[in-house]
Simulated scan of single mutants.
Amino acid sequence: MSLLFNGTKLAKITDTMSGGVNLLNNTLTMKNFNNMGNRGESNNAPNINFTIDPKEEYQNETNAKEIKTSVFHVYAHKLVNAPVALGQDIYLPAGTWTLSFLARNNTNSDETNTVSFFSNWCANNGWNPLGTSDLIDGVWRQHKITFTTSQGILHENIRVHNVSQDDVPRGSMYFANFKLEAGSQATTYCPSYTDIFNELEMIRNKIGGVIASFIGYFFNYEEVAA
C-alpha cells in the first residue's frame, strides 16, 4: 500500500515504518526551497534574503566533506526573518519521525541557536512546533528534530524556523542534507526515491536520444530524438 497525495505517490507504507527512506523531494538541489517571502525588497530590510549555493563553495570549511547537497544560505538580522521553507507538503501517518540536516551559523564564538519544525497544522495547536533541534553553532554538524504524531496529518508549508526576535549569529545560517524519515534515529543522507527515479529517467532519455541520433546518422536516416 502507498501513501498518495493529489495522485502522487509519496512513499510505501513499509517505507514509513522503518528509517532510512528520505520522504522529502528536491533535497539534492533544493528546488522550490525558499524563505517564505522574507526578501530584502524594502529600504528598511536590505539584508533579508537567501541563496542556494553549490556545495563546492564550502569545501574548505570544517566537516564540509559531509555536505552532499546544495547549501541553503539564509540571512537576516533577526531569526524570525530567517525561515527555511522546504517547498512541499507531506502526509505523515501516526508515528515517530525524524527530520535531520547539516547546519551551521555564522559565528566563530560560542553563540548558538536552535530551529524548530513547523507546518500549517501548528496554527491550530497554539503554534507549538512539531519539535526543536539541538544547539547549532558555527561548525557544520548533523542536527535532528524528532517528533511523534498520534494521528495521520497532512503537513502543509513545512519549514524550519526560529520565531524569536534574537539576532541571527553574524547574520547568516547555512543548511544542507535535509532528510525526513520514520523513527527516532537520523541515518545517513540519501535523496528520495522520487528524486532518484527522476534522475534515472533523465539519464535514460538522454542516452535514448544519443542512440537514436547515432542510428539515424549511421543508416543515413533523418535524425530523430527520443
Rank of each mutant, 00 (worst) to 15 (best):
G37M: 12
H73I: 04
T14W: 08
E181K: 13
R141F: 03
I207G: 00
P54V: 10
Q88H: 07
T8C: 10
H161Q: 09
F5C: 11
S109Y: 09
S70P: 02
N198M: 13
G37C: 12
Y58I: 11
D167C: 00
D195C: 10
L130P: 03
V80D: 06
S18G: 08
D167R: 08
P54E: 14
V210W: 12
I13M: 13
V80A: 12
Q151L: 03
E199C: 06
N49H: 01
P191A: 13
Y221N: 15
G171Q: 00
M202K: 15
P83K: 05
M36W: 10
N120M: 11
E41N: 14
K179Q: 01
S192V: 01
N105R: 02
N26K: 14
D166V: 01
I52C: 05
P191H: 08
G208K: 08
R204V: 10
S42N: 05
I67W: 01
T112S: 12
D89C: 09
L130C: 06
N22D: 06
G138D: 13
T8F: 11
W97S: 04
F33C: 06
V74Q: 01
T27F: 09
T62C: 07
T8P: 00
A176R: 00
M202F: 00
E222S: 13
R39E: 13
R159V: 02
Y189N: 04
S100E: 07
R170F: 14
V163W: 00
S164Q: 09
A64T: 04
L200W: 14
N205D: 15
I145H: 04
A182L: 08
N113Q: 14
M17I: 05
L28W: 07
A103T: 06
F175Q: 00
I153R: 03
P93T: 06
M36S: 11
E66K: 15
A123G: 00
G152K: 07
H155W: 00
D167T: 10
I90F: 08
Q142M: 07
T69D: 01
K179R: 04
G152P: 03
T51R: 14
T194V: 13
L24S: 03
M17P: 04
N49L: 03
L130K: 13
L23W: 07
N120Y: 10
G126C: 12
M202S: 14
L79M: 15
L102F: 00
M17C: 11
V168E: 03
G171W: 04
F197N: 04
N220D: 14
F147Y: 15
L23K: 05
A186P: 07
S100G: 10
E201R: 13
Q165N: 08
M173I: 04
I136T: 05
T107K: 07
F178D: 02
T146P: 05
P46K: 13
N38V: 06
D53P: 01
E111Y: 09
F72G: 05
S2V: 13
N60M: 10
Y91S: 08
N22P: 13
T62E: 15
I196D: 09
T194M: 10
